[in-house]
Each structure stands twice: as C-alpha cells, then as structure tokens.
Amino acid sequence: MKPLLELQEVHKHFHLRASLLGRWLAGQRDRTVHAVNGVSLVVYEGETLGLVGESGSGKSTLGRLAIRLQEVTQGLIRYNGLELGKASPAQMRQLRRELQIIFQNPYSSLNPRKSVRQIVGSALEARGVRDPRQQELEIRALLQRAGLPERFIEAYPHQLSGGQRQRISILRALAVRPRLVVADEPVSALDVSVQAQIVQLLEELKRDFGLTYLFISHDLRVVYHISDRVAVMYLGKIVEVGRSQELYHRPQHPYTQALLASIPRLENRYLAGGRPVLEGSVPSPLNPPKGCPFHPRCPVKLSISPLDFYLHSPQ
C-alpha cells in the first residue's frame, strides 16, 4: 500500500498571551499549550485510520494540521509525496479539493443563512462547476446518493434534523471529489440509531469513491467498527498504533489497555464496580510530562530514561 499522508515529528503549540491586566495584577505569564507534541504517523491510500483519544489529547488539532487548516509549529507533513507546508498558494488551492473535512457539530458546520443548493453549490464551484443547471443536476444526484429527497435542495439547515444536516455536510465534502477526508467526530452528536446510518453512509461512500479516511473520535466502539488501523493518542502523542482487531484485542500500551477496559460492554453485566479503573485525570497540556506522557498515571511504570520513549513494534 502506498502512503498518502505522512506526518513526521509534527508539533503544534498554541501560545496563550497573558493580558496586560493579568500580568500586572496577578503576575501571569505567556503560556504554551503543547496540543500536538511530536507525532509521526502514516495514512495509507484507501484505508481508514482511526484516531482515538480523550478530550485534550490533541486529536482534533492533528486532524486540522493534516489538511493544513492550521499550520504546524514544527515537523513536516507530506501528502502524496508533496510537502504541504511548502506548497505554493496555487498548489494549495488545487490540493484543497483533495483534502476535505467533516465536522462533529451538524449545527455549526452549515451556514444557517444558506440553502442546501448554495452550500453544496459553493463546493461545486470550488471544483470549477459554475453552470447553475449543471450544479442543480449534480446536487440532486448527490442528495439521492446520501439518501435524501431531492426537494431538500431548497431547504435551510434549521429545517433539517441532525442526521440530515450531517448528510449535507458529507455531501459538501464529497462534491469536490476528495481523496483524503478527515472526519472529526462525525457521529458523536447524533443519536445511536442515526449514528449507524451515517457510519454506513461513510462506508459506502468510501467504497464507491475510493476515499481514504482519517476518522477521529472518542467513541472507541465506532472507531473499531470503521477503522482498518487505529492510533491511540494521549496528551499530544501517539502511544500505540496497530491493526484495529489486534490493537483492540491485544493492546500493548498500558494506556490503551486502561482505555479499552473502561468501555462499557453488554458482556460485562455488573462490572460497573469490579473493573480495573484508571485513576486520576489527564495532566495539563501546558506542561506535559517528559517522555511517555502517561507515566505519572501508569500502573506498570518502568524506570527508563524519558528520552527512550518512541514508537516501536513489540517483540
């Protein structure tokens, strides 16, 4: 398989400027959030790579870096052999069409003042389809493809349900015929029964259009279902990557083990009190621990140098 997207030692730091008043009254200082803290990862053409992690792990930031909606602080990202950070504005405009994103919140991801025709139409324009009749034909075809009635073409977002909006959001991304789609918690805001519809739609579209997904979610169950490989992120770092079945059934990293053990399962009747529970909470990304970010909470901490923390294949 051919690597479509490669991330090498990617960092993203956000600088929080202390206000003048805060500085003067409370002695506050500028601080740096290490949202992504040295991530190397490969997404292969045609696969679905699941990216899981808890809040504050930096997974959403990583998704935005991957398609250059945000700029990396350090490190490089290569798409299809081309370094994204060095792409010219003209090249980038071309690339934008190949790199798309679907968001979590179906309420704020669609412009409330635009009709479905305008929303999907603006994506078609980005692809160079300007003729209104051609646009109309394509939008109707896309609506049908997403299981929505064609008359929705005139609808505004507030007239649609959460699931319907999410379908429109997917159509907009699809209308430019992308190759890589970053799906950032695409089903987390939806009801269980609707969730399954959207997951199924995403799977069908991937098959039909030969897409590659970077599927970001905190829902470990959905990620298992949809992903070929899964990467586990904790506090800005990837702690484990592997084929999904292997990773879920033979997790190696203590954090992955703890995370998977926390998932409620139908098989675990009355386990609520009996399961191993990971204590404490995630440290602040303002000052992440050196080495393995998990070591302050780790039940099997080893006494090795923090510098020796890197991804390797377990023997």
Partner: peptide, 14 residues
C-alpha cells in the same frame, strides 16, 4: 471521558 466515566460509575456502584 470514558476513563472518567468508569471512575464515576464505580462510585455510584459503591
């Protein structure tokens, strides 16, 4: 988060 959920559910269980 799911690991915190496990902590809270254990507390309710107790």
């Amino acid at each position: 988060d799911v690991t915190v959920q496990a902590q809270i559910m254990r507390l309710l269980d107790q």
